[in-house]
Design a binder for these strands. Sequence first.
DNA 1: TAGTCATATGTCTAAATATACATATGAATA
DNA 2: TATTCATATGTATATTTAGACATATGACTA
Lengths: 117, 117
Amino acid sequence: MNKNEIFSCELLFKVLSNSTRLKIAASLIGGKKSVSEICTETGTDQARVSHELRCLTVCGLVDFARDGKQVIYSLNRETVLPILEAAGEHVKRFGDRMGSCDIISEAKRVKTGDVTL
Amino acid sequence: MNKNEIFSCELLFKVLSNSTRLKIAASLIGGKKSVSEICTETGTDQARVSHELRCLTVCGLVDFARDGKQVIYSLNRETVLPILEAAGEHVKRFGDRMGSCDIISEAKRVKTGDVTL
DNA sequence: TAGTCATATGTCTAAATATACATATGAATA
DNA sequence: TATTCATATGTATATTTAGACATATGACTA
């Protein structure tokens, strides 16, 4: 991996490291959806979903097509599914440990009141 | 993907979305390395490398073994390489576009003085 | 063409994260 | 056992990001 690739990967992982964007992507695994369907499925308000959809679009994770008043978004399955699958494999083995990393999730642990021991 | 998996994936992607941690992981693709070797290869100071190595260790991306005064870190190739490879595929196609996403890289674009037009 | 439905964009603030710097620990050796 | 080398940890601050809220646009329909 050269520096450019590393930087682009950093951006890609940044896209996926936000819970709203990740929920949207996960929701689109099930198939194309309109913005309002995505809002309902992910329990997120419309403005924020639209913001994040733009990010996902620019970064190539989703495509869209207008259909009358609606805009239908779809996952770029070809490149995104392999990433999610590979991540899923890792998480299957190490998911439990990751919550105890204070560098990436100090705040969340405090907020959700998890016990650290 | 259920909620737990999504949350764990979010953490995993957060680990990989930091340039220092990603550089360390990329550096370890080439094989096991001591902390000071990683510092040299990635051009990062020792304290920060150690911090990030702990994160990478807790989250299952690297393993370590003490060897005298040194500590040798290795990549958990089995789960991490597939993630990096899949990310590499995406980036090969969409890497160019991603820099123009203001949501994930506003600050960096300003700092590096890139032209946006 | 006025209204309304669906979606997109602008922007401010709170929260999370990265980094720098200081310091501690732990193993080897003189 | 004092010293030195390699690595780890604590913590304050600056930067970055997420999220909330207000508002704009664009397409269809009465």
